[in-house]
Design a protein around this nucleic acid. Structure first.
Lengths: 178, 178
DNA sequence: GGTTTCATGTAACTAGTTACATGATTTA
DNA sequence: TAAATCATGTAACTAGTTACATGAAACC
């Protein structure tokens, strides 16, 4: 699960409580992700039992106690290992979002492996775009003359095309700069 | 759940079996979605018990029997009702994908209501893009001079920006043509 | 003789959402 | 005085994934 790894990256940069992590998510990986605090608490509990993180309870004045999580050596090793592995995730967005986490985490693992995964996903997306382009040419040879259900279907296909174009443009940028 | 409604649209256009639906998904809503056959079978079973669809077993020569599903009047009513409702879905992609289903389904409900939802989501995405642009300006005033963790963070933010730009471009196109 | 296609399903699991609960403090 | 912020959690649910099972036919 990439949520585990997203949390690991965030905690590598700065140890913190589940609550803080939830807030940080809104302004970093949150561009691709949203995790509710329940999901984060649950995942943290699992990570603790797998000893990827260690916990220190911190008492506060006038505030509830907080549990500050810190990445363990095993957690760092797990992160580095995951970064080098081929991209996981079933759906298209799952893979893109996992890659985003890996890019964010690149400093904690093998950057070259991340670059390879960027290139691979770029090609996957390009292949998909080619398929969509082919479908468009065959099914909608005159896109400006469409009405009714054909128009609606074409608009959805266009959305697929735009999505692929966007993903490819970004992945090309990453390839160049990473 | 929008899978129910995606299935309703598909069955409105053409009655068919769960297997056929799974294949059709790969080449229509599939630009935004992937549903495994198990998910489809399970959802169909639920829809049958809610009487949104009716089933006719069809014997075949040399092939296993199939169950052909057909949308009931209640199913059509449910679809029309859902189309007019405000967009549901927690995450950003959930809402975009649900809107794609509604665009595809526009002919079975209130097109004007869909247009309004397109405009609303467009504005939501534009607002998000503005936030990202703001973050970029504040945190990365000189994007070409970045290295290490800053570079990685910026690349992820760029991905968020590209995603929003893509979504906005598509929604503008839909606004214009729908 | 092995893979793909057609067709449905059970079972077990992981991921993600929604609702509810607690309780003090700060801000409007 | 009502809402928001800080901080954690239980419980129940919905959505989505992965693995396994069956069995005939068509294709290579």
């Amino acid at each position: 699960m990439a949520l585990t790894h997203a949390i690991l990256v965030s905690l590598c940069e700065q140890s913190g409580s589940g609550y803080e992590l939830a807030r940080r998510f809104d302004r970093s990986i949150g561009y691709f992700w949203t995790a509710t605090h329940q999901q984060i608490y649950r995942t943290l509990a699992g990570m603790e039992s797998e000893q990827l993180v260690s916990v220190t309870p911190v008492a506060q004045q006038g505030r509830p106690d907080k549990k500050v999580y810190k990445v363990s050596p095993a957690g760092r090793a797990e992160l580095a290992h995951w970064i080098a592995e081929p991209l996981d995730g079933a759906g298209m967005d799952a893979r893109l979002r996992n890659l985003a986490v890996k890019i964010r985490a690149a400093g904690y693992g093998d950057v070259e492996a991340v670059r390879a995964q960027v290139a691979a996903l770029r090609d996957e997306r390009a292949a998909r775009l080619a398929v969509y382009r082919g479908l468009e040419a065959r099914q909608f040879p005159d896109p400006d003359a469409l009405t009714g259900a054909d128009l609606h279907q074409h608009l959805v296909l266009l959305g697929g095309i735009r999505t692929e174009q966007g993903a490819i443009a970004w992945l090309d940028e990453v390839k160049e700069k990473l």
